[in-house]
């Protein structure tokens, strides 16, 4: 088979070849899209939409249950609820050093694991803790109950104003 014949053959098959390659590439593209969607959905599948244990958003009752100046430690939720006058805040009791649960004291918090000490605002006073304790958003539900959202951290010193 010489070179010229080759060329003629090519010309005859040119149209067929383009069509063929279009079909192939389309198929491959479609399959790739499908594979992509399936992979994406399977990855989203892995992220739980509801918690099986304690919810990250939970209600703690009406504001009037908390006297002014009171500090209520919720051991299970790992949060301290504090009311000063008409302002309410929720402070995390998870040590920012290595995740131990800190103890609430009269003057602040202290961590039993590595001796970190925080003041009432959660700022680090001593010890290896690199950051102050987190403050969580406190909100009011339509029924007038307090709701803490542990997934939204707010600036230290952010209080919720409630009616007296």
């Amino acid at each position: 088979m010489n070179r010229l014949e080759h060329l003629e053959d090519d010309r005859a098959g040119a149209v067929k070849k383009t069509r063929r390659s279009f079909i192939s590439w389309f198929s491959v593209g479609a399959l790739a899209v499908c594979a992509g969607v399936m992979t994406l959905f399977n990855l989203i599948f892995l992220k739980p939409r509801v918690s099986q244990g304690a919810a990250s958003k939970f209600r703690i009752g009406k504001p009037e249950n908390y006297a002014s100046g009171s500090v209520v430690e919720m051991k299970e939720a790992k949060v301290v609820v504090r009311r000063d006058g008409n302002r309410i805040a929720a402070i995390s009791t998870i040590c920012t050093h290595l995740g131990c649960t800190v103890n609430s004291t009269d003057v602040g918090f202290e961590c039993p694991c590595h001796g970190s000490i925080y003041d009432l605002q959660g700022d680090v006073v001593a010890g290896p803790a690199p950051e102050p304790l987190a403050w969580y958003r406190v909100g009011l539900t339509p029924s007038g109950e307090l709701e803490i959202d542990k997934q939204s951290v707010v600036d230290a010193g952010t209080y919720l104003e409630v009616e007296a």
Binding site: S24, S27, A30
Partner: peptide
């Protein structure tokens, strides 16, 4: 060529079904 068309058709159909799955 036949098999390419088969692949083409089945991929097309799969795309439709995947669209259904997404919905």
């Amino acid at each position: 060529m036949k098999i390419r068309i088969a692949l083409f058709v089945s991929s097309l159909a799969l795309t439709l079904v995947v669209a259904g799955v997404i919905l």
